[in-house]
């Protein structure tokens, strides 16, 4: 490990808990029934899918992209409330699916579901030691938490590279890493909204595409890249609409100030994605194994 802070390296547990431990009941009011808290996927041939099916479509996309169908063992880094793990084992025949989260609330909820073949661990990817190689790795909506707002671009790249090195080492052939993350678009880091950085996602810093590319250089080849920022605008709008329709219950659960904070965050995010200030990257990364082209 480096001189970077051991407490926050690769994702601040406090920052994660600040956001995700608000209340399971609160999130269940406005997320879809699978409790998937990340951007849904709408394809051009089915633009009118309801949120829950668009979330399912997103999970399916990442499962197939990573090569997880029928796999013996897979890893989900930042598993949230477990919708991906449940779909891997319940629908796609994965025999053992390991999920990592820093949120105790998410981990205990997931354990309470008692899903066969699902193993949840409350630990960072930096502390994780696999007991066997993974046939596929998926990470959706966790990468945003790996770096810190005060880090320079080279420092961020160093953290991201450590992540890619681990994934590369943990993957067995022909497994892939499928990854979804919000990233800076036209917004410059110094213009980032302080409200979101301090009130909603403390200790989090978005990557830039070029940082991801630099950090994975020589370890992974980019098999697919999409920027589906309008999907995230639409997801935030759907969440906002659902929160508004259950507003009274939400206020009873967490109080007016928290509900207002989330409404503002969802509105700002929706507009930020529409404007292209921030983007939503979906990447499929294939480990470089060939000795024909030795990584430098």
């Amino acid at each position: 490990m480096s001189e970077l802070s051991a407490q926050t390296w690769g994702g601040s547990a406090e920052g994660i808990r600040h956001h995700y431990d608000v209340s399971h009941a609160f999130y269940s009011l406005w997320l879809d029934e699978s409790m998937t808290y990340s951007c849904a996927l709408w394809e051009a041939d089915a633009p009118d899918l309801p949120l829950s099916l668009a979330q399912q479509q997103k999970l399916d996309f990442f499962i197939r992209a990573a090569g997880a169908v029928g796999a013996a063992c897979t890893l989900d880094i930042g598993c949230g409330w477990g919708s991906l793990l449940g779909r891997m084992t319940g629908v796609y025949g994965v025999r053992r699916a390991v999920g990592l989260t820093l949120s105790e609330a998410q981990a205990s909820y997931l354990r309470s579901l008692g899903l066969t073949g699902v193993e949840v661990r409350t630990e960072s990817w930096t502390a994780h030691t696999p007991t066997a190689a993974y046939d596929a790795i998926v990470s959706i909506g966790a990468f945003e938490h790996f770096a810190q707002p005060d880090q320079s671009s080279p420092e961020k790249i160093r953290v991201y590279r450590a992540f890619f090195e681990r994934c590369h080492r943990w993957l067995s052939a022909p497994g892939r890493l499928s990854l979804q993350t919000i990233a800076y678009g036209t917004l410059r880091p110094e213009e980032a909204n302080r409200f979101i950085q301090s009130e909603i996602f403390p200790d989090s810093e978005l990557p830039r595409l070029e940082e991801i590319v630099a950090a994975s250089d020589g370890l992974f080849e980019l098999a697919l890249l999409r920027n589906d920022r309008l999907d995230y605008a639409r997801t935030c709008e759907a969440w906002l609409s659902r929160l508004r329709s259950r507003r009274e219950e939400a206020v009873t659960l967490v109080g007016e100030p928290v509900v207002e904070r989330y409404e503002r965050y969802l509105k700002l995010s929706a507009v930020g994605f529409r404007m292209g200030k921030i983007g939503l990257l979906r990447l499929v990364l294939r480990p470089i194994r060939s000795h024909w082209s030795r990584p430098s």
Partner: peptide, 26 residues
């Protein structure tokens, strides 16, 4: 900027007593 867009829509909502999508301006 995004903050102004959100404020504008929020104030319109309050004045017109309508629930509006934050992305309506797009």
């Amino acid at each position: 900027d995004s903050a102004i867009v959100v404020s504008l829509v929020s104030e319109l909502e309050e004045w017109l007593e309508l629930e509006l999508s934050p992305s309506l301006l797009f």
